[in-house]
């Protein structure tokens, strides 16, 4: 087991180094960030000073190695636009994104599981058909349509803050998070409902469920205790992956609601060619994904000894 974990961690480190290198190289090759300012050219002496300031007067490999070294000490440098400490910007955005991801996952679990269970136990009834239609819609409608729709219809009403809103209006975090969290949760909730329905139907046909019923257990106990627990496993796996994706920042949803998380930060950084901000966010997204998938692998290995043999 220890050997397996070590190997997986070594893989993870390699993936991260390869990812940073490719991202760094891509941005480096993309062009000269100091050639123009507004629509005017930048005089050579100013360009020179800027290059030196941002450490870009070094050869590419030196730059990359310095960057890598600084990154391991959580020093991400300063950004090209406002010259702020990138570490501070990330420190502000990461908790916001994590909060959004967790709330969205909670919402999708509650809605998805409930709908899935209801659909499964009342198979082929009106309720089942209704849930099937709704989940099809949920999976089919693109996230940006849902987001824009919710923003247009609800923001500024009742407890939902306006987008954009004046910065002097204090808004509690939970009010800010409701709409983007629902937007993110809808697709996954629909998917979870379908997953749950399918796996539950399978379990309900299993022998031990029939045995439980034969023993005279109440329907509530049969569904809640025996069927539910066993059919929820694929949902847990799916949610784990989903969390990994969301933690990297929800670009579209955060941008629509101007939610100050990693995704929104990344979108703005890309628009401004703000390379020092782009690199760590992308690396962070890769990192969370790698870590979570490693955890899932380890978990699998623990659950299923056969995997360790490969």
């Amino acid at each position: 087991m220890a050997k397996f974990i070590t190997r997986r961690l070594a893989h993870a480190v390699l993936v991260i180094i390869a990812a940073t290198f490719l991202i760094y190289l891509g941005l480096f090759v993309l062009g000269d960030p100091f050639a123009s300012s507004g629509e005017k050219t930048v005089p050579p002496e100013i360009q020179e000073a800027l290059r030196e300031k941002f450490g870009m007067n070094q050869p590419f490999f030196m730059q990359y190695l310095t960057y890598l070294q600084n990154m391991f000490t959580f020093d991400f440098g300063i950004d090209f636009e406002q010259r702020r400490d990138v570490g501070d910007m990330l420190a502000a955005a990461v908790p916001a994104t994590a909060r959004l991801a967790v709330i969205a996952i909670l919402i999708e679990i509650v809605i998805g599981l409930t709908a899935g269970v209801i659909a499964a136990v009342s198979q082929y009834t009106f309720r089942d058909v209704f849930i099937t239609i709704i989940t099809t819609l949920g999976i089919g409608i693109p996230v940006f349509v849902i987001g824009i729709g919710l923003r247009a219809g609800l923001s500024g009403e009742w407890i939902f803050p306006a987008v954009p809103r004046s910065f002097t209006v204090e808004t509690p975090w939970w009010q800010e998070i409701i709409l983007p969290a629902f937007t993110l949760a809808i697709l996954d909730a629909a998917f979870i409902a379908r997953l749950m329905r399918g796996s539950m139907l399978e379990v309900l046909r299993a022998d031990y469920v029939r045995t439980a019923r034969a023993k005279g257990l109440s329907e509530r106990k049969v569904i809640g205790k025996h069927a539910f627990r066993n059919s929820v496993i694929p949902v847990v796996t799916y949610t784990g992956v989903s969390l990994g994706v969301l933690l990297g920042g929800a670009l579209i949803t955060e941008t629509i609601f101007e939610y100050q998380g990693l995704g929104f930060l990344l979108v703005r950084a890309i628009q401004q060619h703000n390379n020092p901000v782009i690199v760590p966010i992308v690396v962070f997204a890769v990192l969370t994904f790698v870590v979570l998938s490693t955890l899932v692998d380890i978990l699998y290995a623990y659950l299923d000894p056969r995997i360790r043999l490969h």
């Binding site: 300012s37 005089p43 002496e45 100013i46 300031k53």
Partner: peptide
């Protein structure tokens, strides 16, 4: 000052000593 790496320093380029500051 060179260390400032200002985007607008070039407005001063007529002034004596500008080149030394930028260098």
């Amino acid at each position: 000052a060179k260390a400032s790496a200002s985007d607008v320093a070039y407005h001063f380029d007529q002034i004596e000593g500008y080149d030394e500051m930028q260098a």
